[in-house]
Structure formats: structure tokens, C-alpha cells
Amino acid sequence: MGILEVKGVNKRFGGLQALGDVNLSVAENTVHAIIGPNGAGKSTLLNCLVGKLIPDTGSVMFDGKSVLGRTPYEINQMGISRVFQTPEIFGDLTVFENMVIPAFAKRDGAFRMHAFESVANEKDICIRAEQMLVDLNMQDKMRMHSASLSRGDKRRLEMAMCLLQEPRLLLLDEPTAGMARADTNNTIDLLKEIKEKRDITICIIEHDMHVVFSLADRITVLAQGTPLVEDAPENIRGNPKVREAYLGEAA
């Protein structure tokens, strides 16, 4: 029984069957990659996991509880954090303020009317935020406006914000899309480090095979809305069906 269990999920947009009978089981403390050609339904699947879309049929269970019908913030409070394809951060705020917000969300829940305390006096929150920035080697950018960060640093900040919440499941939507090789390698190193140091399950959607094969413990190949194969990385490479649907096309 995995931490995330997707069973018989269908999603249709008008005449397009975006997801057809998707079954997926993500084991705890592993890195599970979902790959597939464009239009395979990877993003639709991800959106069904975080409450942005509701599947037509099927069930999505996280840690034994259904996530269907819950809003994104409720699902986040259950322990699922999401990193977006283009970094979604609070661009008007400083890096430090960006880090403080998830710390409050983790401690105080979805809403708390703390209008008279001062942020600076919430020592435990500030210490956690600073510690996480030190962990990810960003402490020298703490007072910077987050909108002025480089693309790679924005990604790093978003990752830090998600990790600060100590999620049980981290969803990554093409974390290296549009990145230069050096930045991609940095992200791989960062994710490897996260995987080693923390008890965390990572579910990653990615186009870049280099990233997938250097990180994943298990890979699901999605084609035309249906899982084609699910196997260990070394078996995926040689699988003729996958070659045909995806790798062959690329080669």
C-alpha cells in the first residue's frame, strides 16, 4: 500500500479523454517519476492530485484519506506540497518573507487572525525560515526581493518553501523545464540531497530523461492518458513499448 493510491481515474474534457483509467501507486520514501510525450495527461493527473481538477470517476487516496473534493489548501495541509513548472513565489516579498509564510501555514493552519503580533517576534518561525535558507545555501539572499532572483534561485526558493512545511509528498512539475544544463545539474543535486536527508516521497513529472534516470526509483510511462508501463528505471530504458511511445520518438 503506497502513500499515494490513484485508482481508476478518468478525466474527460469535452471530446478529449485526457485520462483513461489511470492506476498509480507511489510507495513511501521513494522518488516516482511520471514521464510521457506531450499531451499524455501528466499535468492533468497532477492537477487531479492537488485539487485543481476533480476526476470524473475513480479515487485518489493520500495516506488512506481521499483528496477528492478538497480545495488545494486543504490538500496542502494534509501533507502534499507542489512545485510548479514556472516557479510560483511571492514576487513582491523578500526571500525571508517568502519563507515565513509556509512556516505560519504549517504552525497555524489555513487561517488565523494574528493581527497584533509582530512577525519579527515570532522567534520559532523566523529561526525555522532562516535555518531552511541556510540548508539550501540561500542565506545571503535573505533580504533580497524574490522577484529579482535568478530563475534557478526562484526554483530553489520555491523548493525551500515546500520543504519547510515538511510535506510527506512533494510533487514536482517539470522542475528543470527551460533551465540551462548547469542549473539542471544543480537541481538534480539538490533533489538528491533532499531525498537522502529527509523522509519524503517525491513524485516528479519530467521531460528531461537525464533528470529522470538520475533520480527516480520507479517510473510510470503515460501515453494518451493511460499508464503504459510501470517499472524500475533500468527496465524502462530497454522496454520496446516505451521506446515506441516516447524514447523512440525522441531518438
Binding site: T71, N76, G109
Partner: peptide
């Protein structure tokens, strides 16, 4: 981002 950070 606020929504996906668990805040309503």
C-alpha cells in the same frame, strides 16, 4: 502560491 501553501 498562497493556496498551494495551505492557506485559505
Amino acid at each position: 502560491r498562497l493556496n498551494y501553501t495551505g492557506l485559505n
